[in-house]
Design a binder for these strands. Structure first.
Length: 781
DNA sequence: CAGTGAGCGAGCTTCCGCTTGACTT
């Protein structure tokens, strides 16, 4: 008989805690939630006060059986799930499923995994907070209602298998609206003027002072006129202002800030960051990685202080307590930090080491002194005009935390620039006359809004209080898997800009080119994402409101405080919501984003674009009921074409393929573009066209060459064939030799030599091959 | 691997949050 059984959520946590508690305590884990609403038949009895039907999740059956056994053998069960809404619900579900009696059950909480925190938690047990549990039930039931009532509307009115939800649909909306802003954006240019003045620095060496003009000029003429004036002008220092400044370190990492910085500094995707962090957590190197808290344990602060003193000295230490600003934060855990601050680095994969180092530096820096700066502003007057040049410099007087860690911003990673260099202003005083070296007037264009990265989308969602640390990464994956959003690399385009230079009393003009709009790993909506979003905004404005989550969160809070009954809150939400669902089912028109582009000049028939069953398409002519009427022609949209932006000409181009090139060996040769790029088709075989040929202009002779080359390559790939069994071939493929038999492929054991395989050997391999399991969920057919 | 875009229409799809494995071509 075990005396005490402690149940936490995570197995890694269980291991650590067991050490702290010592004899008489067995610590195990529930692996998160153990029960959920049944998926079949909605899982909620709406008519009966939203009564939920909970079932043990299929993948938790084993855990639950194990827990039941352990609980039976224990005198006292300590429910130690997290101290937040979800954690309280887990404790309650455990109590229900394990049929725990009140006299043998205690509820304890701690938000840091330190010996002190655990022992004091054990000394202060409480009972399950039913109000908090009800708040969780309200959250869970509301999400099910929204997801499972709105998604079917989409199946009927847009396309089968689509999805909608409180979190994902708003995430998509952010991306759609940003894309529309970008499409609407008109770039304007203006001339930015920079002056360079010759000076001597402190040691007497010649140096340059760089200053920006306070104004920009809209046109080349204005810029030119200004430069003309400067030819005869005198430049005088009008004012030198020095003021102290400081910079403070960023707070320790939460899930969202870790994702952002790992994206900016290490180039990790959001899910990559979480996978690497999970490994660090499991091997005991960092604290829990799904958290919204910036709080550090007293232990962590003390050891950080020691480490800073050891490395940089006492004057670099500044103990700080950070407050969480995030909306709806529940702070069940500490911030993400190294378990042992004394370890500056850890063993592990390259990615693990880099992420750990980032976490270590951020944590250390958060307890370090401010950086002290001196900012200098010099204004330079021009004798014959009222504009002024302004030079700014920043000198670090005391580096403080900057020694260890500087937080990045999204703008930097946009242009791939490192932190701005610190400009040092040479010794200078008011009324000094300055000697002009040159003045440049450079045409600059206003920047369109930036597309979201995965990490900047997480940041925005967190600001809106939408989603939780455990769901940021999955949500970002979901909206990409559903094909609402794609992560793309964009080639920039060349843009010309003008530069006017005044030097040696003469003005010269030059046109330069720059690359603009190049992007990597930015999110943009697909056509289907846009159609779904617009449909939802039109029909479910409440759900799509950016403040919807914040509003219901406030209600969940009052349920948690016992001021509101959860079923009543749901009732008042459900009545108007369900009416909208019925309205939409009954009245909303089918939505496919259809857009009329114009008329086909050859036939006079209308040309459309829309989202079809297999994705976006262009269409010439309409389906007609008349006898013998011509069918419409269809072509898929590809190659960066969008329903909202495609032109008539671009649409008509799509119909130029497939092209007939003629005949070879009495069989037709055609060229087209497929899912994997342009290809030639001949004798029901496909040959990839490759990048060097253009499918719109390629000729028959080139096609024949490529067909022959492919044949030669296929011949070489054959390792063995057998006359008795023509269906069976041993081939050399991308991953080495394999057996091909009746359109299925089979692996050859590494120990056998492919060239020596007999027909019997092959048949044996085929027979013994395991049934291929489809590992992807929800694959079609 | 790569075309489709009408047709009978059965049966299925779908949410958010909490947590880890077991899968390979």
């Amino acid at each position: 008989m075990q005396e005490n059984l402690v149940i936490v959520e995570s197995p890694a946590k269980a291991k650590t805690i067991e050490k702290f508690l010592g004899k008489g305590f067995v610590v195990t884990s529930s692996m998160g939630h153990i029960r959920d609403l049944e998926k079949k038949d909605f899982g909620i009895d709406i008519a009966n006060k939203f009564k939920p039907r909970y079932i043990v999740s299929p993948d938790k059956k084993k855990v639950v059986t194990e827990l039941k056994k352990l609980a039976k053998d224990a005198n006292m069960v300590w429910l130690a799930s997290d101290e937040d809404r979800e954690g309280e619900a887990i404790a309650w579900h455990l109590k229900e499923v394990l049929k725990l009696k009140p006299e043998n059950t205690k509820r304890i909480v701690f938000h840091e995994i330190t010996k002190d925190a655990i022992t004091s938690a054990v000394k202060n047990p409480r009972t399950i907070d039913n109000n908090l549990v009800d708040a969780q039930q309200a959250r869970r039931v509301l999400d099910r209602i929204v997801g499972f009532e709105v998604s079917p509307v989409l199946w009927k009115k847009v396309k089968p298998s689509l999805s909608a939800g409180r979190v994902q649909s708003v995430a998509v909306r952010l991306i759609v609206e940003r894309e529309r802003e970008i499409r609407k954006f008109n770039s304007e240019s203006a001339f930015r003027v920079t002056g360079f003045f010759k000076m001597n620095d402190a040691s007497g060496k010649t140096t340059e002072l760089k200053a920006e003009l306070s104004e920009r000029f809209k046109t080349e003429e204005e810029a030119n006129a200004f430069l003309e004036k400067c030819k005869t002008a005198e430049f005088t220092v009008a004012d030198v202002a020095k003021r102290p400044g400081k910079r403070s370190p960023a707070p320790p990492f939460t899930t969202s800030t870790l994702q952002q910085e790992a994206s900016r500094k290490l180039g990790f995707s959001v899910s990559q960051t979480m996978a690497v962090a999970q490994k660090l957590y499991e091997s005991g190197k960092i604290t829990y990685m799904r958290t919204d808290s910036v709080n550090l344990s007293g232990l962590a602060i003390n050891t950080s202080k020691q480490k800073i003193e050891e490395l940089h000295g006492e004057n670099y230490v500044k103990i700080r307590k950070y407050k969480t600003k995030a909306k709806g934060a529940q702070e069940a855990h500490e911030a993400i930090r190294p378990t042992y601050m004394s370890n500056e680095t850890v063993a592990g994969t390259n990615q693990e080491q880099r992420l750990y180092e980032l976490i270590w530096k951020r944590t250390i820096a958060s307890q370090m002194a401010d950086a002290k700066l001196e900012k200098t502003t010099v204004s330079i007057s021009i004798s014959n005009t009222k504009e002024k040049f302004v030079a700014t410099g920043e000198v670090i007087i005391f580096d403080g935390f900057l020694r260890v860690y500087i937080e990045s911003t999204d703008e930097e990673s946009n242009n791939g620039q490192a932190l701005k260099g610190q400009a040092i202003i040479p010794p200078i005083k008011t009324n000094d006359k300055l000697k002009l070296a040159q003045i440049q007037a450079t045409e600059r264009f206003s920047q369109r809004p930036a597309r979201y990265t995965e990490a900047s989308l997480v940041k925005r969602l967190e600001e809106l209080g939408i989603g939780r640390p455990s769901t940021y990464a999955p949500t970002i994956t979901t909206i990409q898997n559903r094909n609402y959003v794609v992560k793309e690399e964009r080639q920039g385009v060349e843009r010309k800009y003008k530069v006017l230079v005044l030097k040696d009393n003469a003005i010269s003009k030059e046109t330069k080119t720059e690359i603009t709009g190049a992007e990597k790993n930015k999110l943009s909506p697909t056509d289907i994402g846009i159609v779904v979003n617009d449909f939802l905004v039109d029909n479910f404005d409440q759900i799509m409101d950016y403040n919807f989550t914040a509003k219901v969160e406030a209600e969940f809070d009052s349920i948690a405080e016992g001021k509101k009954v959860w079923t009543e809150m749901l009732e008042s939400f459900y009545q108007p919501f369900h009416k909208k669902v019925e309205d939409a089912l009954e009245h909303a028109e089918r939505s496919n984003g259809e857009r009329l582009l114009g008329k086909d000049p050859k036939t006079g028939k209308p040309v459309f674009v829309k989202v079809g069953r297999y994705g976006p398409l262009a269409q010439i002519g309409e389906v007609s009921q008349e006898e013998g009427a011509e069918k419409p022609r269809f072509a898929s949209l590809r190659g960066g074409l969008n329903i909202e932006t495609i032109t008539l000409e671009e649409a008509l181009d799509l119909f130029k393929l497939p092209r007939d090139l003629g005949e070879y060996e009495n069989k037709k040769v055609t060229v087209a573009i497929g899912r994997f790029g342009p290809y030639i088709r001949h004798d029901s075989k496909f040959v990839s066209l490759g990048k060097e040929y253009d499918p719109y202009t390629v000729e028959l002779d080139v096609a024949i060459e490529l067909i022959e080359a492919k044949r030669e390559k296929d011949r070489k790939a054959i390792i063995r064939i057998f006359d008795e069994e023509p269906d069976l071939r041993v081939l050399n493929g991308r991953w080495g030799p394999y057996i091909s038999y009746k359109k299925k492929n089979y692996k050859i054991p590494k120990t056998t030599k492919a060239e020596e395989l007999s027909l019997e050997d092959c048949m044996k391999i085929i027979k013994e091959a395991p049934e291929p399991k489809s590992r992807r969920r929800g694959r079609k057919k």
